[in-house]
Nucleic acid binder design. Structure first.
Length: 550
RNA sequence: UGGGCCGUAGCCAAGCGGUUAAGGCAUCGGGUUUUGAUCCCGACAUGCGUAGGUUCGAUCCCUACCGGCCCAGCCA
């Protein structure tokens, strides 16, 4: 990203900490995903925040996998997460796994027991739940709360040795069962799970929980500012309690910010995986998905995503960003960088009846009028061309200045044509248009001045392709269920025609199909079936005029 | 109804006791342009959830109220 990173309330805190020398001027952050799903644009916000803060303050940002629940986690997710972060262009200073700290965590737990800050509880999860109280009533103390610490220590050891089954015992912190903050009502910090862990394999059958693990991991890694989302605000007391009780020399501070919500999208790993599982979308990297892999396949660039993250800001206010903001970032970048070619998504045959048969001419055009170094392309044209269906109207509305019977328009980069005749099949479907062209108008200054300009492709020299056009995944701006999916979010144009200048060997080249939008080759494209994805439309003020019914 | 947060334009978001209340997106006007694109210019909160209070002065401090979000996993 070439724009400066915006300030926000967190950078204000960091500035202040630096001024008061709270951390001796150090700024260490971390991005701590659980490897239980693919990263999405919401994670990008957090990645951007953490890495950019480290960068602007000359600090460090670690990648740490919060892998304390082996049932949900696996290597595939770890790899995809690393990939996505690298794709965004960030390099972690060091990589860690909470599971690397299992031994230390266990030792800290033992110390807490020794100091009477924790106890082993044999209550069932149902009992613990009941005894926890409610939002308005205090909890009650467990029968095991006063278990002598040497006894707890011994049982905890046996838990580790695998002497018990899942659920038989848990380790709990001894804090305050009547705290108004439910997280402080003797939270469970270790549970027995006889499950193989993707990294530690069968070394452990007890696993520490988030609240115990996260703060200690931060402390161990010398994190200064532990940035997380709003739902952890209530956990901050616990975070600080643990850090204080283990008496660690480094005392990181947790700061919470609002997670990203994007209109017309769902943004939780659970729901995104539901979309995949129910086959509402093709895969995690379906171009409609707000996952980073999906956006990559859609054609979004790391720069555009980072620019987006920068624009939306960081606050504590729950808010939903309009899709237009996201779309605008990629449009802005591609307007400057994308080569222009022509592509006809929904072709109609057009015959230029006065154009000599078997003749072809070559037209020169620039690849990008906004970039003088973009070079020139040659486009062929002949008697037979294709134009887009929506560039012709048999009964044109007011202010429609494209092709219509008897009307003259200009073919982009070429010359003017006039529609003379519509050829239909028996059902009334338009098969073909017969037009005449005006040779004089090759010179723009001659020929008739026309308002309409349409794009086209030489029917005798073009690429057959499939174009995937996407609409928002959910029609509702604030969807709740995956079942609300927009059934028309994917439109496949099967017989599109593309200008020959497209480099089919280049998988990353993003093109502007003039007057239409930006496109990139789909990762599933093949020589047999060439397919391109629409990244985003060009802005279309005709659409607006048309909508108003003028 | 216990606790923790949040409330500045249609959507984001600066602002930290004295400012003409930044900026972006959207929208609306106008100009350039034979991409209805881009680009350029202009408009867009006497107002900061509401009501009181403190103050010479309050978006900023205090109080109350209203509205929204989060918390009762052996998930993270």
């Amino acid at each position: 990203m070439n724009k400066p990173t915006n300030k926000n309330f967190i950078t204000n805190i960091v500035d202040n900490d630096n001024n008061t020398n709270k951390f001796g001027g150090r700024v260490n952050t971390r991005f701590p995903p659980e490897p239980n799903g693919y990263l999405h644009i919401g994670h990008a916000k957090s990645i951007f925040l953490n890495f950019e803060i480290a960068k602007t303050y000359g600090g460090k940002c670690n990648l740490r996998f919060d892998d304390t629940n082996p049932e949900k986690e696996n290597i595939e997710y770890i790899d995809s997460i690393k990939n996505d972060i690298e794709w965004l262009g960030y390099k972690w200073d060091s990589i860690h796994y909470a599971s690397d700290y299992f031994e230390q965590l266990y030792t800290y737990a033992q110390k807490l027991i020794e100091n009477n800050y924790a106890y082993v509880d044999s209550s069932s999860s149902e009992i613990i739940k009941e005894e926890r109280g409610t939002l308005t009533e205090p909890g009650i103390k467990s029968k095991d709360r006063e278990r002598p610490s040497d006894e707890s220590l011994k049982i905890f050891e046996q838990m580790k040795q695998g002497k018990f089954n899942d659920g038989e015992y848990v380790l709990r912190l001894k804090i305050d069962m009547s705290s108004p903050n439910i997280n402080m009502r003797d939270p469970v910090i270790y549970r027995i799970k006889k499950v193989e862990h993707h990294r530690t394999k069968n070394d452990w059958c007890i696993y520490p929980m988030y609240d115990f693990t996260h703060c200690i991991s931060d402390a161990i890694e010398n994190i200064t500012h532990s940035l997380c989302t709003l739902e952890f605000e209530d956990h901050r007391d616990l975070y600080e309690w643990v850090i204080e009780k283990i008496n660690h020399e480094n005392q990181p501070q947790q700061i919470e910010f609002a997670r990203l919500a994007l209109e017309h999208n769902l943004m939780s790993k659970r729901k995104l995986s539901e979309l995949v599982e129910k086959n509402y979308v093709e895969s995690w990297d379906d171009p409609r998905m707000p996952t980073l892999s999906g956006m990559k396949r859609r054609g979004y660039t790391p720069n555009a995503i980072k620019d987006f993250c920068n624009r939306i800001g960081i606050t504590k206010k729950n808010s939903a960003i309009e899709m237009g903001v996201l779309e605008n970032t990629i449009r802005e970048e591609l307007n400057l960088t994308a080569k222009r070619v022509m592509g006809v998504l929904d072709p109609i045959k057009v015959t230029l009846v006065n154009y000599p048969k078997d003749e072809t001419e070559t037209i020169k055009a620039t690849y990008n009028p906004n970039d003088i170094n973009s070079g020139e392309r040659s486009i062929s044209i002949s008697r037979n061309i294709f134009i887009d269906k929506n560039d012709f109207m048999e009964f044109p509305e007011k202010k429609y200045f494209r092709l219509a019977p008897g009307k003259e328009v200009r073919l982009r980069h070429a010359f003017n044509i006039t529609c003379e005749k519509i050829i239909k099949d028996n059902s009334g479907e338009i098969l073909e248009l017969e037009c005449t062209y005006d040779p004089i108008s090759r010179d723009m200054s001659k020929g008739n001045k026309v308002k309409g300009m349409i794009h086209w492709v030489d029917a005798n020299n073009c690429i057959d392709a499939q174009i995937n056009v996407y609409d928002r995944l959910f029609s509702d701006s604030d969807p709740t269920s995956v079942d609300d999916i927009n059934e028309n979010s994917l439109m496949v144009k099967k017989s599109s025609k593309l200008e020959k200048n497209i480099d089919l060997n280049n998988n990353d080249e993003r093109y502007q199909f003039e007057r239409v939008g930006y496109f990139i080759k789909d990762s599933k494209s093949s020589n047999e079936k060439i397919s391109y994805n629409k990244i985003v439309s060009l802005k279309d003020s005709w659409k607006k005029i048309n909508k108003k019914g003028i």
